[in-house]
Amino acid sequence: MQLEVKTMAELSEKNITPDFLYWVGSAGSFDDRAKKITRAFVKVLNYANVSFGVLGVEESTSGDVAKRAGNEFLFQMQALANIEVMNSYNIKKIITTCPHSFNILKNEYHDLGGNYEVNHHTEFILDLIDSKKITISQNSIEDVMTYHDPCYLGRGNNIYNQPREIIKRLSKNFIEMPRNKRNSLCCGAGGAQMFKEAEKGNAEINIVRTQEALDTKSKIIVTGCPFCNTMMTDGVKNINEGAAFVKDIAEVVAESLI
């Protein structure tokens, strides 16, 4: 399927101001697994005729990994450059498929001069469903599904119910892991852990968490973060390849569009 995507530069040349900026993020742009999530979400956006643009080459990393790794200097370099770009396009509303970008754009760009209304795609998709801009085939998924809360979406920004609401409309077989919502266990990627070897211990965090998901006998592990997706996909591969698929909420929705 051909995706309809324009950059802010292209749109501004034609004097078009889109309603939203879709912040793709580094993972969504470069990571092979995450690129599929990006494509799935754009499919949903196209289906709903949402007017949006992306920054393309003008989008630098949000700076989340740098900041959480302690490199405040590098973070602010990225943030100030990004803010300058976004403010030059007069951007007011942002949607993003990455909870880390979501958190940092919403909460930490503010003090540096970037004031935006930021939506995570789980909230945004639920709004699209509720306002009937997209139609999904209800209860179309037979497989048992569970949901893993990304830390920066759940504990960080109190988004617990929207993704669950979407999943429950898609499947009657939704099952919670024992540790969920506020008590959810991290996938192990946050705080720049994604980019380094873990310290010495007796287990890997992603294996522990993936085991919890597999213990629910779910066939589909849904999450809303490209980093969680990578960690849990690796987890499934390690424990029992093929036992379950790890999917983003955008993917399960895109597959169920009528």
Binding site: L3, V5, T7, V24, S26, G28, S29, F30, D31, K35, T38, R39, V42, V54, G56, V57, E59, S60, T61, V65, A66, Q78, M194, F195
Partner: peptide, 16 residues
């Protein structure tokens, strides 16, 4: 490259 991985920023739109 403006990304935590070693990718060229010019490839940022390749996902499409």
């Amino acid at each position: 490259n403006g990304a935590p991985w070693q990718y060229n920023l010019n490839d940022k739109m390749n996902w499409i």
